[in-house]
Design a protein around this nucleic acid. Sequence first.
DNA 1: TATAATATTTAGGTTTACCTAAATGTATTT
DNA 2: AAATACATTTAGGTAAACCTAAATATTATA
Lengths: 217, 217
Amino acid sequence: MSSYVEENYLKAIYKLTERNKDGAYTNDIAYELNVKPGTVTEAIKKLGEKGLINYEKYKAVTLTKAGKMIAVKTIRKHRLWEVFLVEKLGFKWDEIHPMAEELEHINFEELTERLDNFLGHPEFDPHGDPIPNKDGVFSNHKSVKLTSIALNTPVVMTGIENHTTSFLQHLDKLGLKLGVQVAVKEIVDFDKSVLVSVNGKKGFYLSHDIAHNILCK
Amino acid sequence: MSSYVEENYLKAIYKLTERNKDGAYTNDIAYELNVKPGTVTEAIKKLGEKGLINYEKYKAVTLTKAGKMIAVKTIRKHRLWEVFLVEKLGFKWDEIHPMAEELEHINFEELTERLDNFLGHPEFDPHGDPIPNKDGVFSNHKSVKLTSIALNTPVVMTGIENHTTSFLQHLDKLGLKLGVQVAVKEIVDFDKSVLVSVNGKKGFYLSHDIAHNILCK
DNA sequence: TATAATATTTAGGTTTACCTAAATGTATTT
DNA sequence: AAATACATTTAGGTAAACCTAAATATTATA
Ligand SMILES: [Mn+2]
Ligand SMILES: [Mn+2]
Ligand SMILES: [Mn+2]
Ligand SMILES: [Mn+2]
């Protein structure tokens, strides 16, 4: 299996396992990678034989230590390139993901480490997601959803839980970017929408759905 | 045909056609890409159908306008990434080619143009090769081989005609890098080796073979 | 101009990564 | 516990990009 395809399977399994501790299901992997379930069965059997995942027929799969390392290193490359695209080339945070999806498969350790150095060893990517170090260790963020912040308690926006272009662009329009100070002024009883202030200034209402996808500290 | 493979065929044909104006031969393309001649025949037929090359059975192939554009754009990406790797990440000129071979296939026009801008619109790559602009136009260098420079005429080293690691590393060892001033002090009758001075200082002898691969202006 | 040498193509295979659709296994609901 | 729904696997195919080896063209040489 080409490293391109292999890395994408392992990354998908990693992502799904973060949510579902049991492991990743065939159908979910298929959905994540835009392929059909039969294709996934074939692929995960091979990854199992390679010792990269734990595969048992009809069971959810999990990553082995080796598989997890490849997944995490791919995430590291992805996020470092995203930092490069934003910090050095001036792209916006909603434009970078497709490029990083390709760049993450360029495998030269020396390139990754020099890039990391060039960028000043960033700890988080432009979406606030942590960048694992070269040994695969993540620095822990401990952020919480905006929907669980107490009233009138100022916090800093540190991340997001939805990475769609439309969500990112909407946040831009509202001036909600990483680092801004946010405070919840009111929780609307009717629909759980929240009134927020941004950097002290009088703010606006956010739907529960939006607030739920904003992370703060 | 994947853009990765397609770009490599077109690039190889471009390179071979630069030398052999008739076009590129099946066997030469095969050698260039490390594949077997039968594989090339199959590939060039498809590229012909796509309108990227002019293919006639048993004849050398040439690039169409469309094919040439893809080849040149691939070369542009390759050389821009090489500048990045040297200027920004601090790699040496003998380390960068394999990485650029991968990076050149990342196809996002906006990425290429922003990279170009970030690098200050370089005209030449770290090996002295010209970087075509986004319309595929090369700036002309007009350099000549060190073997055809008149005695005691100081010139500037601007390029090389051999890109092997061993050649590059040898030049490094001799202090022969792009931009140095070189003068031919003597041409040895016996073996056509040349005595050169470098940046005014007393120099050393270079075999004809080495001198022949050094370009000056 | 035959013959030999060399280049190119063709024929028949393989592997990878995908597909559809049928078969089978697992889970949920009556 | 059957029946039904849903998930997963299997079976059989395809297309891309490679291979080897045989067949055929072209080119060079005797
Ligand atoms: Mn991303
Ligand atoms: Mn990100
Ligand atoms: Mn190169
Ligand atoms: Mn170069």
